[in-house]
Amino acid sequence: MQSKTRIIVLHMKEIIYTVIFLLLGILLIVLLASMFLPGKNDKSSSAKKIYTPGVYTSALTLNNTTLEVEVTVDESHINSIRFANLDETVTTMFPLLQPAMESIADQIIDTQSLEGLSYPEDTPYTSQVLVETIQKTLEKATR
């Protein structure tokens, strides 16, 4: 009878290199799968959609003069807030209306929220009316 015993000599360096390359290969496959498989990114981006993109307006009446507050939004951001038809007679009658609107609009665009706004000391009530009108306009954008 002849013995068929074979002895294989492996160098420790070759085993370590093989394990490292196998781990890097598995890591590469996992990263590629997580980046390119559909579904995961679609769900996270749809959760951020708050508004229907567009330009929305609401009416504000001051002393028989109707002003339109115009809010421009995209899917997840408030882009601009302004008066649509502000003329000289209104700015003459209400000189602090435009500065109050600019102050509130800047705060809302920076924070993307109607919460925690600071109203100018000289126009607190006008600012509250403007915020209520902006809130009504944003409710139109969320429908």
Rank of each mutant, 00 (worst) to 15 (best):
K4A: 01
D74E: 09
E121S: 10
E132R: 04
K140Y: 05
L96G: 03
G54P: 03
A33L: 12
E14T: 14
V131Y: 03
L96A: 05
I134Q: 04
I78Q: 09
I134G: 10
V30A: 13
L23H: 02
T52M: 05
T52Q: 12
S34W: 09
E139C: 02
R82A: 10
S34E: 12
A59F: 01
P95S: 12
L31Y: 08
K40E: 02
T72C: 04
L37N: 02
M12W: 09
S76V: 10
L31T: 12
I26W: 10
V69W: 01
D42Q: 12
T89S: 15
L60M: 13
L27F: 14
I26M: 11
V129H: 02
F94Q: 06
S46I: 03
K49V: 10
R82I: 11
L62A: 09
N85K: 04
L10H: 04
P53W: 04
G116E: 11
I81A: 13
E139L: 12
K140T: 11
I108V: 15
T65G: 00
L31A: 10
D42N: 08
D42R: 07
V129F: 02
T91C: 02
E88T: 10
T133N: 09
Y125K: 09
D74T: 08
P124G: 07
N79F: 10
T123D: 07
P120D: 09
I26E: 04
A33W: 12
M12Q: 13
G116M: 13
P38A: 04
F36W: 06
L62F: 00
T126P: 00
Q135R: 12
L23W: 03
V9C: 11
E139R: 03
L27W: 13
T92Q: 12
I109R: 02
L114T: 14
L130D: 03
L67A: 07
Q98G: 02
T52F: 05
E132M: 11
Q98P: 01
R82C: 06
S80T: 14
F83D: 06
S113K: 08
N63M: 08
T137W: 05
Y119F: 15
V73M: 12
N63C: 01
Y51M: 07
S76D: 14
N85P: 06
F21K: 11
S127R: 08
T65P: 00
L28T: 13
Q112L: 04
D122S: 09
R143Y: 01
T72G: 00
S76N: 14
T142K: 15
T126A: 01
I26D: 01
V30W: 12
S58K: 08
V30I: 15
A100W: 03
T57S: 11
T137Q: 02
S45P: 00
I104Q: 05
T137C: 08
T18H: 06
I16C: 00
